[in-house]
Design a protein around this nucleic acid. Sequence first.
DNA 1: TCGGATAGGGATAAATTTATCCCTATTGAA
DNA 2: TTCAATAGGGATAAATTTATCCCTATCCGA
Lengths: 117, 117
Amino acid sequence: MYERKTTPNLNCGLDLIGEVLYGKWKMRLLWFINEGFQRPSELQRKIPDASRRVLNVQLKELENHELVGKVIYPVVPPKVEYFLTDFGKSLIPVIGAVGQWGDQHDERLRALILKNM
Amino acid sequence: MYERKTTPNLNCGLDLIGEVLYGKWKMRLLWFINEGFQRPSELQRKIPDASRRVLNVQLKELENHELVGKVIYPVVPPKVEYFLTDFGKSLIPVIGAVGQWGDQHDERLRALILKNM
DNA sequence: TCGGATAGGGATAAATTTATCCCTATTGAA
DNA sequence: TTCAATAGGGATAAATTTATCCCTATCCGA
């Protein structure tokens, strides 16, 4: 595990939410879990661009921050299901707003991103 | 300047918005510019936790992505003012929603963040 | 009986982001 | 006349995040 070397800034709401949501795949994980893709392997298939490892790490962080919970079924092969806590559910409209803006400006964003590479 | 070594994923709205908004201080820069703090030195005073350098770098990226524009007054000592483009303004409600969630859950978030250090 | 599916952790490398420090230039104020 | 304010870039180091690769274990189907 990585040990943080600096203390986070916690001045405003943006700092606070950043501490729990700033991670390349976190919003997507929450979104897909909310859509019903609850098993790690399903999530990995939904987000093939992320490595298996990061998803595990980020899921663990979401769990530590009480945005998701986890049920481990004592079966073999192993079965695990994530679910959103109420706290996590309260983030869904926010993530929706973020993603919607991205979708609405899809073309323009693509053009801009490509232009700046 | 840093040269990107991998190609970005541009699959969904979240990927797209991430390309222009994923940066520790970008949302705050947009927010404060919208509030009327337009000169670099003012922004630096509003965000003392960020180094002068990063703010310059991130402002430049916001400019490249057409979220902000910049007026350079040909005076000495130099005077520069940033402003939001219409495209940038359209992001303000989104950033507002994000920050509001953080503010609403201020106490709980602080507790969680501290617990996980 | 061998390979794939299942879940996930450790060690390490690579990529990326952010911080530090230094340099340019000019004006006005102490 | 020396220092702060103004804006911002280059070089480099440090911090952080993400990717790669390997290992554990069990059951089912071909």
